[in-house]
Design a protein around this nucleic acid. Structure first.
Length: 472
DNA sequence: CCTGGAGTTGTCCTA
DNA sequence: TTAGGACAACTCCAG
């Protein structure tokens, strides 16, 4: 046993603690080799620009925790792992499962191949319930969230309790590899700026959880709707990259729920449930990212006007709440959940753009972008999913911002050029009397754009377009 | 097989 | 000023 080596393959589980695969190996082996493989060969699309930045920093932290023993390689994991098993005297290799169809197919192939030589194991380190375990009585998958979550998930045995990993660090003698060789960083100026609001490490993931449970969660169910309040967890990137396990969050939230009066901890848990549901939909509908779940939307007359799209991605639509959200995304790699719905509804239903273009932009810009959550959420907001918002539910950017950013703090933070406008006009700058615009040197059409579409008429256009694809 | 209640997050108009 | 219904009809789900 002494010289025998095992390999843990890091993927979407960039943590030491409560890592089922690492836990398994550390129980049985003294020597664990840890490897990360950047796979740009099998993937159906490369990871987004913001994601690469997060990944780079998360790997750096992980490597530090491993005393510099994390091996960084890129290429086809089958070949890479094959080489590693030739170099070391490997008895077992293991990893935590991923759920995109391309990863499932790839991993299956790798498993079949390596099994001929060594022991291969995989674990659930990403989800609370495996997608194939939650089914209706008739054996088919759920399509609606509430019954999926309440009857499907909550009636199952509770998710596994988190477990500390007791890992002995193994100083291996494999050739020196460098994180830099993965070439994840490119645009230094933007990368520095986008990182100013984040600390990317496993410890910081835990700190973020603690401070959320201490300060944010008690008023989460109401406060989470207000982008300038501190009631959202901002845990999504850490969760996505596996720097904290959902099991840790679930069981801690459960404890908190017994100590507070509101139902806020349960609401937070159901948000974890929505993440589960996204992975569930992806598993049972592998084309979630590219195909409308309701195929009648395949004949929807999207407009896809480039000028509209460019104004949207740059945060220059003339609607402050939309522009603030899109700039938050670009500047911080994150967007508040309510604002994601507002900008999504606007792109699809006021600008009549195919949700897949929005999904692609979010994929490139979000630190927390996962194929599962990103695609499922866009299908929800577009109304193309099976369990999604009805087509006539169109968010009004003005009333939404009046309601959820009542003092305009969020808008002013991300659109400094209109910060001098009084509250009366901050949600609809074009209504500011011209003499006031001059007095405040905030000229609409010059310092800040006029609205690119009119809300009322674009809404009516959308309603008739949606009516045109009705079943008969 | 049939039945009936329900479906994350809205808006607008009318009385 | 405010509360309630229309917006559309469909599919899902469980008894």
């Amino acid at each position: 046993m002494k010289n025998k080596v095992s390999i843990h393959w890091f993927r979407q589980d960039l943590r030491i603690q409560d890592n089922p695969s690492l836990n398994h190996l550390s129980k049985n082996y003294e020597n664990i080799v840890c490897v990360y493989i950047l796979d740009e060969i099998n993937c159906d699309r490369t990871i987004g620009s913001a994601s690469k930045v997060w990944l780079h920093n998360a790997l750096e932290d992980l490597n530090q925790q491993l005393n510099g023993n994390l091996i960084f390689l890129s290429g086809d994991p089958l070949k890479v792992l094959d080489e590693l098993t030739n170099f070391f005297d490997v008895e077992e290799i293991s990893w935590n499962r991923c759920y995109e169809s391309w990863t499932i197919n790839r991993d299956k192939k790798i498993k079949e191949y390596l099994k001929k030589k060594i022991k291969v194991s995989s674990f659930n380190g990403l989800l609370l319930w495996e997608p194939w375990e939650v089914l209706k009585d008739n054996g088919t998958p759920y399509k609606v969230f509430t019954p999926y979550y309440k009857r499907g998930c909550l009636s199952k045995p509770p998710p596994r309790e988190p477990k500390e990993t007791n890992l002995k660090i193994y100083d291996h003698n494999f050739k020196q590899t460098s994180l830099k060789d993965l070439k994840l960083l490119k645009n230094k100026k933007w990368e520095e700026k986008i990182l100013t609001n984040w600390k990317i490490s496993e410890v910081e993931a835990k700190n973020t959880m603690k401070s959320f449970f201490l300060n944010g969660v008690s008023d989460y169910s109401e406060g989470r709707n207000f982008p300038s309040k501190k009631n959202v967890s901002r845990l999504s990137p850490y969760i996505h990259w596996g720097q904290i396990s959902v099991n840790t969050l679930w069981h801690n939230a459960m404890k908190i729920s017994r100590t507070i009066n509101s139902n806020s901890a349960e609401v937070f848990m159901s948000e974890l449930g929505w993440r589960e549901f996204a992975y569930y939909l992806l598993f049972h509908s592998p084309n979630l990212q590219t195909k409308n779940l309701q195929n009648k939307f395949d004949r929807f007359p999207w407009n896809n006007d480039e000028r509209f799209y460019n104004a949207w991605i740059r945060g220059k639509t003339g609607y402050p709440i939309i522009d603030a959200g899109m700039r938050e995304l670009w500047q911080t790699g994150y967007m508040h959940n309510r604002v994601r719905m507002i900008v999504g509804s606007f792109l699809v239903k006021n600008l009549l753009h195919d949700w897949r273009r929005g999904e692609a932009w979010f994929w490139d810009c979000l630190f927390d972008a996962s194929t599962a959550s990103n695609s499922a959420s866009w299908q929800w907001v577009a109304g193309t999913g099976t369990d999604s918002t009805p087509y006539f539910r169109i968010f009004n950017p003005i009333t939404q911002s009046q309601k959820f950013d009542p003092d305009g703090a969020y808008i002013r933070k991300f659109i400094p050029e209109i910060k001098k406008l009084p509250n009366k006009y901050i949600f609809s700058p074009w209504e500011t009397p011209i003499n006031l615009q001059q007095e405040l040197s905030t000229i609409v059409g010059q310092d800040y754009p006029r609205p690119i579409v009119e809300i009322k008429s674009s809404r009516e256009l959308a309603l008739s377009a949606f009516a045109s694809i009705k079943q008969n």
